[in-house]
Design a protein around this nucleic acid. Structure first.
Lengths: 206, 206
DNA sequence: TAGATTGTTAATCGATTAACAATC
DNA sequence: TAGATTGTTAATCGATTAACAATC
């Protein structure tokens, strides 16, 4: 019930949920922080601390109800509702993220696509017609919760400027630059960065 | 020159490099930690602390040479050599990562592809023939530095078991489960997790 | 030399872990 | 009730920031 929640905690929430799903698949109905900690390779203390930011979901002497905790976390992250998405960039990366969302994320509905290349305009990708930048700019103003950037940096920068004043609440950015838009949360995926860190570890084993 | 380097520092290294590249594009040849901190939105202190884990790359009264620092970081991350890559899974996600690597990461050479589906076997993707699991298992033993997992969780788990004893030094995992292989560094990308954290932020603005 | 800015030590801040009283 | 395990406070640990002497 604490007010401030650190980024470190927020980044762990989806992971808790992944493990809770797995437990449900195994028909396990309750779990203690100790057991869960062993499975997830974190301390029981951290689990209890993390969860208590949002309320007391456990029961002394018993542990946590797996399904109940999963549902609470779903609510905390707002995954008990749907989000509309618009894509900027429908190249290989864009198409694969579109496919990923449609196949794995039922709470996210893709409602608009945009691409710069004339040969892409008017084409349908998984049932949605690709728009040009001008008509997308219009479409973008209302009814899109999350903007997904899967376009080259130059185009991403252009679009960033158009976000203010729209209903967009979050940006999921696969581009290679960081960007900040006031009033909108941006998550930068940065594939290159994670690959390059991997190289660091490869060259500095311990 | 310090021996232990925390994950937090390692994750920041690629980001420093991105900004140094940008500075080079603008023909800026030197920069102080103060200026760089302002551009990157971090403290000058953090930059100096981070870099000094690896040596004194700056000069008092002057700052850092942009090209020189970039080159040092390249060396630290081992990006002055090439890495061979094998892909497990050649679906939409796999193909898009293959395309991403070939288009953006000259230090990474894709040398082997694998897919489970009969209709994929023998097909060529960006010049590389897709192998079945059995022949890939053989191929995997030598000459692959990094294994990229872009296959469903079930297949990822199978492959994980075959890694020990190969020359593979790192795994770049796009699957939806965490996994650990002893002696091999694994970086889990977890697209869902980052999307779900974004939802948390959308629902808890401040 | 004087000014600037590093490299590095010390102080602060925040996150993780440990401990334990509360309680199911 | 006794045992188990939470929720929560206190202790520890690590990372970030500030300060400053070294030095280009």
């Amino acid at each position: 019930m604490n007010n401030y929640v650190s980024d470190a905690v927020i980044r762990r929430l989806p992971r808790y949920r992944r493990y809770l799903k797995k437990l449900q698949d195994q028909d396990i109905q309750r779990i203690s922080s100790k057991e869960l900690g062993e499975i997830m390779d974190v301390t029981a203390s951290q689990i209890r601390q993390d969860l208590n930011h949002f309320g007391g979901f456990g029961q002394q002497g018993y542990g946590y109800g797996v399904a109940e905790l999963d549902q609470k976390l779903e609510g905390i992250m707002g995954l008990d509702r749907t989000y509309t998405m618009g894509f900027v960039g429908c190249g290989k990366m864009g198409q694969s993220v579109i496919h990923f969302i449609n196949g794995n994320e039922p709470n996210f509905k893709i409602v608009a696509l945009c691409d710069n290349r004339p040969e892409m305009i008017g084409r349908e990708i998984e049932g949605i017609v690709v728009q040009d930048k001008e008509s997308f700019r219009q479409r973008m103003r209302t009814g899109i919760d999350i903007l997904v950037i899967t376009a080259p940096a130059r185009i991403a920068e252009e679009v960033a400027g158009d976000i203010s004043g729209t209903e967009i609440k979050g940006v999921w950015n696969f581009g290679h630059t960081d960007f900040n838009v006031k009033g909108v949360k941006v998550i930068n995926v940065h594939l290159s960065d994670s690959l390059h860190s991997l190289c660091y570890y490869i060259n500095h084993p311990d």
